[in-house]
């Protein structure tokens, strides 16, 4: 069996509450992400999806258990991954070109080279004309495109995405999803995509993992998405195969959403 790109081995994570008590966010997560796969994680609000990603990124250490990256135990930051955050993470004081090339600059790539490569990526995401703009001058969708280019320009095996498109309107969002799939199709990177939107999860992923409502979230079920690729995101959602999948996964997710409502944690 090939080594997974990313693996959670009995990972749990607790936080201290303001009252000084122990809050267990995630409990005994075991999950392997095969290299080149597109994995989506869904779950009700507050189930610890972002916590899981933060541990994969190495921004947060597990309370117990280990995170493995390419078979090796992760200690400190995950140097094999980039992370696309839900919030805007572009540096507001750098223009679009500098932001896209940031990872290269940080790695010591020369100015001219970094610029040229950033420009190539800007052309690829359709923002060639905006190289000298600052993030504040762009629309939400354009900023996400810049963030995508920023994450893709440096060559890392794993891309972690935390509800990256949730702030966008539905049409922009579908366009961004399409562009993401196109990029992924060319690169075959491993993607872990966290979302609360089941439709988005099915439309994009090879596999959908359902997390339970918190506290002590665990993996409820895993569902292989067998839809053909490349997928036509505009029509996909009405196809019978899609609807069937949606129905069976929603049966699981629904329980957890109801639980999380009942516990008043939303």
């Amino acid at each position: 069996m090939p080594i997974p790109a990313l693996e959670f081995v009995h990972v749990s994570r607790s936080f201290a509450t303001p009252a000084g008590r122990d809050y267990r966010a995630l409990d005994d997560i075991c999950l392997a992400v095969p290299a080149g796969a597109f994995l989506a994680i869904v779950g009700p609000s507050g189930c610890g999806k972002s916590t899981l990603l933060n541990m994969a990124a190495g921004l947060l250490a597990p309370t117990s258990g280990t995170v493995r990256v390419g078979g090796a135990e992760l200690a400190g930051l995950n140097r094999h991954a980039t992370y696309m955050f839900q919030q805007d993470a572009l540096l507001p004081w750098k223009d679009v070109r500098e932001n896209v090339g940031l990872g290269l600059t940080l790695a010591g790539v020369g100015r001219a080279d970094a610029q040229a490569r950033a420009d190539a990526w800007l052309a690829r995401v359709g923002l060639a004309a905006f190289a000298r703009h600052f993030p504040a001058q762009l629309s939400g969708g354009m900023r996400k495109r810049v963030a995508m280019a920023q994450n893709w320009i440096i060559d890392r095996d794993v891309l972690l995405m935390d509800e990256p498109f949730s702030a966008l309107d539905i049409h922009t969002r579908q366009r961004m999803e399409g562009e993401l799939l196109a990029l992924w199709g060319e690169s075959r990177r491993t993607i872990v995509f966290v979302t609360h939107d089941l439709e988005e999860a099915i439309a994009l992923a090879d596999e959908v993992v359902v997390l339970s409502a918190g506290p002590a979230s665990h993996v409820v079920s895993r569902h292989a998405v067998t839809l053909d690729r490349p997928r036509d995101l505009l029509d996909l959602r009405t196809e019978p195969a899609f609807v069937d999948l949606y129905r069976s996964i929603w049966a699981d997710l629904r329980q957890e959403v109801i639980k999380s409502h009942a516990s008043g944690r939303v």
């Binding site: 990124a57 921004l59 930051l77 995950n78 140097r79 991954a81 980039t82 992370y83 955050f85 993470a89 540096l91 750098k94 940031l102 990872g103 600059t105 940080l106 790695a107 920023q150 440096i154």
Partner: peptide
Amino acid sequence: LVDNARMLGASERQLVRH
């Protein structure tokens, strides 16, 4: 912003500067 820069490979000194 800090987390993103760190994930993109920023060292402590680069974090201060950028």
